[in-house]
Design a protein around this nucleic acid. Structure first.
Lengths: 84, 84
DNA sequence: AAGCTATATCGGCATTTCCCGATATTTCCA
DNA sequence: TGGAAATATCGGGAAATGCCGATATAGCTT
């Protein structure tokens, strides 16, 4: 799921006038792709957002999620920096 | 535990003539330090070894575990290299 | 061989995590 | 305003994980 969001243009069909890379991908699209239930996907994305790994934007009835690359860079640094 | 094994000389008393950095740390020492049961520690170390993160060396009645830094480097690279 | 020490494996209980359906909430549209 | 669509939250069953004591195995030492 996180890898899909790394390159949304590659993995998701674009939604009307929405710019996938800029605004993100909505729950329904991800749900459809991964095959889990709507509640599970929503829950999961909410967790990742609360953990700081994703950024959520509510637009109308949709919530668009996209990666917070800074958080991933920090994680990467933690690994590479010998903290683990 | 993995962080302790990063610098065994710092976290463990050396055992007789054993070179901690070279051969590793035995189960008993780790168990004593982390406070979990012998079976739990052994089980955990075995898992990490099977996962490729640790290297095990049996010497007499002791099994010495040390980090497989290459595996950690690969993990770090996976994070930093955009695979995640 | 007998007994001791260090480690490994097994069976099982307690807790946590995964994932779902049902329901609530938010927002749009007729 | 009433209803439909998208998402969020709740309650709970199933599966996985954490950790333990008991027991098995391996390698001393006498």
């Amino acid at each position: 799921m996180l890898q899909w969001l790394k390159e949304p243009q590659v993995h998701f069909a674009l939604q009307e006038s929405a710019d996938l890379a800029a605004v993100g991908v909505c729950v329904g699209q991800i749900q459809q792709k991964c095959g889990l239930s709507q509640s599970t996907v929503s829950e999961y994305l909410t967790m990742l957002q609360k953990a700081g790994l994703l950024h959520a934007t509510r637009v109308g009835q949709w919530t668009y999620y996209k990666r917070n690359e800074e958080a991933f860079a920090a994680l990467s640094k933690a690994f590479g920096g010998g903290e683990i």
